[in-house]
């Protein structure tokens, strides 16, 4: 009756994914709302933004929305993990015959899968509004999504276990969310950032993980014709590895500190 840790990891991820699927109507509504918000916003701003700064704001913003979608969904696992910590439901997971690291990575994997599922409609919209990625660019798009959703999932989980207090959990989650959201080039081009903010802020914003991912998506959907894609991918992978490592350590510590 011995089950391998890999199977337990997969079972843990599937459990969370099934819960996600059980909320399919909520999920559909959430996606529809997010899409509506983002595209209404983009359409309105398309008329306001100077063409010499951003030629087509909708096309500029859409790949960024793909990046944002990944972490909005990944954060949903954080919300659930936070609820489990608050209601002490996590105790059940802690007594199961599995390693704590299996549990942690199972949940991160689930967050990643949620993020990928959530991203699909945004990718389809990007393909319609811009152009589909070439066959050569597709593996890079997939790799980017996997790195980004894994990073955001682990970050969301770690932040949600910081405290048992809902207010503290929510504050930290919102803070992380908005820091990543705001300090990114999803909504503003580098040119716009340089016009508004002193250095080194524009440079910092451009090396933030969401910005890097958004740039890669822009390249994948052919908005940018040429960027140093390998450098960007490497930078995103480094970000991902560091944040995932920190987040995993925090989550493990929070799970086992009692």
């Amino acid at each position: 009756m011995e089950v391998s840790e890999v199977k337990k990891l997969w079972l843990t991820a599937l459990r969370d994914l099934e819960r996600f699927a059980n909320n399919k109507y909520w999920l559909a509504a959430q996606i529809a709302m997010n899409l509506a918000d983002i595209f209404i916003f983009a359409l309105v701003f398309r008329g306001f933004i100077k063409r010499d700064i951003v030629p087509d704001y909708l096309q500029y913003m859409t790949p960024g929305a793909v990046a944002l979608a990944s972490f909005v969904a990944a954060f949903s696992i954080g919300r659930e993990v936070g609820m489990e910590v608050r209601r002490e439901l996590v105790d059940y997971l802690l007594v199961l015959p599995m390693k704590r690291t299996t549990l942690v990575f199972g949940r991160i994997l689930s967050g990643m899968l949620r993020g990928l599922v959530y991203q699909v409609p945004f990718i389809v919209i990007a393909m319609i509004l811009l152009s589909p990625p070439t066959i050569g660019k597709t593996p890079i798009l997939i790799a980017t999504s996997i790195i980004l959703t894994t990073t955001m999932s682990s970050l969301a989980i770690a932040v949600s276990t910081i405290s048992r207090d809902f207010n503290i959990q929510a504050t930290f989650r919102a803070l992380t969310h908005y820091l990543l959201f705001f300090f990114s080039n999803v909504f503003y081009t580098r040119k716009a950032l340089e016009l508004r903010f002193p250095q080194p802020l524009p440079d910092i914003i451009n090396i933030m993980p969401i910005s890097i991912a958004a740039d890669i998506y822009r390249w994948c959907f052919n908005y940018y014709q040429s960027i140093d894609i390998w450098q960007k991918l490497l930078a995103l992978a480094i970000w991902g590895a560091i944040l995932t490592l920190i987040a995993t350590t925090i989550y493990l510590r929070n799970l086992t500190k009692r």
Binding site: M1, E2, V3, K8, L11, T12, R15, E18, L96, P97
Partner: peptide, 11 residues
Amino acid sequence: DLLLWHAKVVG
């Protein structure tokens, strides 16, 4: 669902 998952995890 809960018990089925539990059964699989315990072996």
